[in-house]
Design a protein around this nucleic acid. Structure first.
Lengths: 207, 207
DNA sequence: CCTGTTCTCGACCGTTTGGTCAAACGGCAT
DNA sequence: ATGCCGTTTGACCAAACGGTCGAGAACAGG
């Protein structure tokens, strides 16, 4: 028996640059049209490369999508990881809300890519949801419960409290066109949302 | 000049039944895979009809999708239309939340179909959003403002208050797999959400 | 029963899709 | 120059796609 994995060579500069270019283009196209709605030709055009060249750097369309999703999941969960059990309960939660809203504002394509995946039943990330995400949420839910029992925040079902943060912040990225259509011109949805969500969660969390 | 519209004949029973069958199958497939991800063969198979038969009842794939969306938009806005300016403010809003959550629970596929459309930039309903939806929301936002000025509910930006209702209720339908993955087995997401959202909005709306 | 209309579908068509391949290109150490 | 290796692409392929067509089956009304 010999080594199955044949000594991965380090990536050249060209490889690093082109892989990044391709992933950026793929994010643009996948987030707008979904996995099946996106075509390699589209991605290739946005990336400024030929289609066979994409497939020189990635083995398949799906591989590009998976790569995007897996790197996404990490940065997506970071704000929740940062919720500090030792900090001030209300401020910790409000910080989390703020970070989540910033993520929606600064990375709306990532948010929509994720939303697309979940909408279709999460065929490629259901494992991550059931294991990594669940255990992280359970851990932080325990913190919230602890704070509630100590009377430092209102007594609310912790999982649903977290869902409400996800729903309220991601809504501004995922339903961007609807939000802007309803508000009309001359509004900054994210600036307004920032104040609104601050008020909302302060009132909600008050014991 | 003669009549452009050539005397629409009434639909036969077979036409009514088959059109309904097709729309039901299309809803199933479109809501799961999105417009471009869905294929006529899939819809035909779910409907138990042949592909040419679908195109006997609808001129194209897009026509089926448009039909679904337009009938959807009506039922989707009904709960908001029903918000009564003469009723008790908090109870009216809580009724709206409840109706919206019921819609998510009983018609999750419709919710996901709509979410899919908005995610892709609402190419087929942007007009409806900017005109019908906007004017309806503006009208009801005025009611909320009035209630706030009268000190009957908390003073909150009315548009964002409505957004928060949409976000919180639709989240349970659109992100169903994520909610269930995080909660684990043995939970009834909608039952729990019902109580949680009741608490949330009562605290939020208290002046 | 016959006759005209409605309905159904196998076979087919042109296009688009994800993916392959061999040939060519480019920089660079010898 | 030469040979080498990472890179790039035009040409191509099989499968899947939305949609068409014509011929036959089912259903009316008389």
């Amino acid at each position: 028996m010999e080594d199955e994995a044949p000594a991965e060579r380090p990536l050249t500069r060209i490889q690093q640059k082109n892989r990044q270019t391709i992933l950026a283009a793929a994010l643009e196209v996948f987030s707008q049209h979904g996995f099946r709605g996106a075509t390699l030709d589209q991605i290739a055009e946005v990336a400024g490369l030929s289609k066979p060249n994409l497939l020189y750097y990635f083995p398949s369309k799906e591989a590009i999508h998976v790569e995007l999703l897996s790197t996404l999941m990490d940065t997506w969960l970071d704000p929740l990881r940062a919720l500090d059990p030792e900090g001030d309960p209300v401020e910790e939660i409000l910080d989390y809300v703020r970070r989540k809203l910033e993520l929606s504002r600064d990375y709306p394509r990532e948010s929509r890519l994720f939303a697309n995946e979940i909408l279709q039943g999460a065929p490629r990330v259901s494992e991550v949801l059931e294991v990594e995400l669940k255990s992280l949420v359970d851990e932080k839910a325990a913190v919230l419960s602890h704070w509630a029992r100590a009377g430092r925040i209102a007594d609310l079902p912790p999982h649903h409290l977290i869902f409400s943060i996800w729903a309220l912040t991601q809504h501004y990225a995922d339903f961007d066109v609807q939000v802007r259509a309803v508000l009309g011109p001359g509004h900054d949805p994210y600036a307004e949302a920032d104040g609104f969500l601050d008020t909302l969660f302060r009132k909600l969390l008050a014991p």
